[in-house]
Write a protein that binds this DNA or RNA. Structure first.
Lengths: 146, 146
DNA sequence: ATTATTGCAAAGACTTTGCAACTCC
DNA sequence: GGAGTTGCAAAGTCTTTGCAATAAT
């Protein structure tokens, strides 16, 4: 995705196109490691020292509401963000606080298929995602400490 | 579960049995609505006005580490807790901030079965859970506001 | 007796808010 | 021109910490 795509995305959702918003979308897209709000904020400060932290938070909220980005669920109480991509699941490492994407359309289809046959009463499913929790058994370094 | 069970649980994990810990376990167990740390803290204060908030947080941490309770993933930046029960999934309502349990052993078995045939390289799975996101189509009242 | 645990209050981390000034359409 | 956005700094919320006092084994 490039700047042009971002602009179209914003317009489609009825949002004004501002440099701040473009910067936030780009940051979440580039930092595609489920960055925290602060990581996004820091990344942006490098290129646009004039964009206020408060604005980054507000923008992250707005973009989340409009489904341009998503919040990732964590169990540590920090808000993390994710560019909207194809359906994917998340692998949570219990050792290192990393969250990795897990793409597997066979699995995704299987789960959606299951719920087509077994509906949850009075509930409309909008999204299904797997939390796969565990730990890596190779010796790869931990990017973030727990 | 009663007090006696809690005590055994603590001892098994090598933790000293203290009234504070018993109170926290009980609170998470009784408030079985995935309470936030603050909700646990408030509930405890009613019966034990002398238990400090800091202690509740510390205890929640300890119990989580020892797997006596679990943290529930949320996308709103608040820590929530869950008594450890049978394997279950979570239904997240996009309207009302409720998190409900979803028990379905057929589904759970299907997913675990899938991963037995399709392992993730260099990764040891410890837990798999579904995030089912959507909204209720009946008119039940929202317990918590969004 | 020894070591873990608690209470307290202060500090810390992260996020939200209010409002005047400024931009985008 | 007007509604929607932003910057700023202050206020909030939730959580963690340090340490002396206390309680569990």
């Amino acid at each position: 995705m490039d700047q042009g795509d971002y602009q179209i995305l914003l317009k489609e959702k009825g949002l004004k196109v501002t440099p701040q918003r473009l910067a936030v979308i780009e940051a979440v897209d580039v930092l595609n490691d489920h960055p925290t709000a602060e990581e996004v904020s820091m990344y942006i400060r490098k290129q646009h020292p004039n964009i206020a932290t408060g604005t980054v938070y507000k923008t992250l909220d707005t973009l989340t509401e409009k489904n341009i980005i998503k919040r990732v669920r964590t169990d540590r109480g920090l808000l993390r963000y994710d560019a909207v991509k194809d359906n994917h699941h998340h692998i949570y490492c219990t050792q290192c606080d990393r969250i990795e994407d897990y793409y597997d359309s066979e699995l995704t289809d299987m789960i959606y298929g299951y719920f087509e046959k077994n509906r949850i009463p009075d509930f409309k499913i909008e999204d299904i995602k797997l939390e796969i929790v565990g730990r890596y058994t190779d010796n790869r370094e931990s990017v973030r400490k727990k």
